[in-house]
C-alpha cells in the first residue's frame, strides 16, 4: 500500500475542507482499504468520516424514512422500521457479504463500492476503469461475470451492490454535500452512470461530494417483496444475477411494481419495461413470464455470459412469484 496521510474528521466541515483532488473519504474501508492493498486505489490522504453525525434513521416529509450515510449496513438492515416498512431493502442488504463486513460497511460506502471485475483488481492487466486508455481486458477475455445490458466497448463491468438493486426498485433519493457547503439531491437511478467512453467514472458525483443521507419514499412494497440472489455458493458471494421485486396488489390487480436487477449492468438495472407491462395487470405466472421476456429480449451477452439471459428471465419470474405468494 502506498503511503497516505490519515485525517480524522469530526464534522462535515472538517471533512469537506480537508478534501483534495487526491483524497478519499474513508467509510468502513471494506472496499477502499482492499483496493489500496491491491494498489488499485492510490489516495494520498484518507479522510475518516466515521465520526460524522450521519448515523440516524428518521422519518422524512414524504412519509418515508431517511437513512444516515454513516450507519452500518447491519444497523440499517436490522432497524425495526426498515425491516417492517422496507423489508425488500433489509433482505437485499442481508444477502450481501457477511455479518462482519455488514457491521463495518457504511450506507454511503455501499453506494460507491467499485466493480468486482477481476481485471480491475489486477494491476498488471489492462483496464480502462482503473487506467483510462489501457484497454478493457474483459471485452475479449474472461467475461462470464460481466454485463449484458448498457455496456460500451470501453467497459463491460457490473455494479456489485445488492443494496443498490433494492434502492433502485424502491426509488430512493441520495443527498450529498458539496465542497462549497451547499447540498443537492440525486434521484437514485441518476447516481450511477453507464460506462460510455469514461468508465473510470462510476457515478455522477462531483469531486469531493459527500453522501450524507438516503431518502426513501413512503413504503409501498412492505407486503409483497423478494430479493433473489443467485450466486456460485449460497452465501458470502457476489450475485451472478439478482432481482429485487416489490409489488402492490389490490383486488387481484397489480397497482404498483418496483423491479431492478443486479449483476447485469454497470448500474443497478431498473426494469422499466417489465414494470410498465405489469402495472394494472393480474399477478399471474403468464404475466410474470411475459414481463421477464420483454425485459430480457434486449440483452446482449458475450460468449461466456449467455447464461445470464436465461438465468435472468427465470430470476425475474421467480422473484415476482415469491413476492406475490408471500403470506401477508
Amino acid at each position: 500500500m502506498r503511503p497516505f496521510k490519515y485525517t480524522g474528521a469530526q464534522n462535515k466541515d472538517q471533512a469537506l475542507q480537508a478534501f483534495t483532488a487526491t483524497s478519499h473519504y474513508l467509510g468502513g474501508g471494506t472496499n477502499l482499504v482492499d483496493l489500496m492493498k491491491e494498489d488499485v486505489e492510490r489516495p494520498d490522504q484518507l479522510i475518516d468520516i466515521n465520526n460524522l453525525d450521519y448515523k440516524k434513521i428518521t422519518s422524512n416529509d414524504k412519509g418515508g424514512l431517511t437513512l444516515g450515510a454513516m450507519l452500518s449496513n447491519s444497523e440499517t438492515a436490522n432497524h425495526p422500521e426498515v425491516r417492517t416498512n422496507y423489508p425488500l431493502l433489509s433482505m437485499a442488504m442481508l444477502s450481501a457479504a457477511t455479518a462482519q463486513i455488514r457491521n463495518m460497511a457504511s450506507n454511503g460506502g455501499n453506494l460507491l463500492q467499485r466493480t468486482r471485475c477481476p481485471y480491475f483488481f489486477e494491476v498488471s492487466m489492462p483496464c480502462n476503469k482503473r487506467e483510462p486508455g489501457s484497454g478493457c481486458g474483459a471485452l475479449n477475455g474472461m467475461n462470464a461475470l460481466h454485463a449484458i445490458f448498457g455496456y460500451s466497448d470501453s467497459c463491460i463491468a457490473t455494479n456489485p451492490s445488492d443494496m443498490c438493486v433494492a434502492l433502485a426498485a424502491i426509488g430512493a433519493t441520495v443527498e450529498v454535500q458539496q465542497t462549497d457547503g451547499s447540498s443537492r439531491m440525486i434521484v437514485f437511478t441518476d447516481l450511477h452512470r453507464l460506462p460510455g467512453d469514461r468508465p473510470e467514472k462510476d457515478t455522477t458525483l462531483m469531486q469531493g461530494e459527500l453522501i450524507t443521507a438516503i431518502h426513501l419514499p413512503k413504503p409501498e412494497f412492505s407486503d409483497h417483496y423478494y430479493y433473489l440472489k443467485i450466486r456460485e455458493r449460497s452465501s458470502y458471494a457476489f450475485a451472478l444475477v439478482s432481482v429485487a421485486a416489490g409489488l402492490q396488489v389490490k383486488s387481484g390487480v397489480i397497482t404498483k411494481v418496483g423491479l431492478a436487477m443486479g449483476g447485469v449492468a454497470h448500474i443497478p438495472w431498473k426494469l422499466t419495461k417489465a414494470e410498465g407491462f405489469l402495472a394494472g395487470k393480474k399477478p399471474t405466472s403468464e404475466n410474470f413470464k411475459a414481463a421477464a421476456a420483454l425485459e430480457m429480449k434486449d440483452a446482449k451477452p458475450f460468449e461466456a455470459n449467455t447464461y445470464k439471459v436465461e438465468m435472468g428471465k427465470n430470476a425475474i419470474v421467480r422473484a415476482l412469484t415469491q413476492a406475490y405468494e408471500r403470506e401477508v
Binding site: 490519515y6 480524522g8 474513508l26 482499504v33 484518507l46 462482519q100 463486513i101 457491521n103
Partner: peptide, 23 residues
Amino acid sequence: GACTVIIDGKRNLSCLTLAATCE
C-alpha cells in the same frame, strides 16, 4: 474471516480495519 475480532461488541474484520480508526 480468520482475522475476526470483536469491536465494541460487534464482529469485525481486523484486516480491513485501519488501526488509526480504533481510538
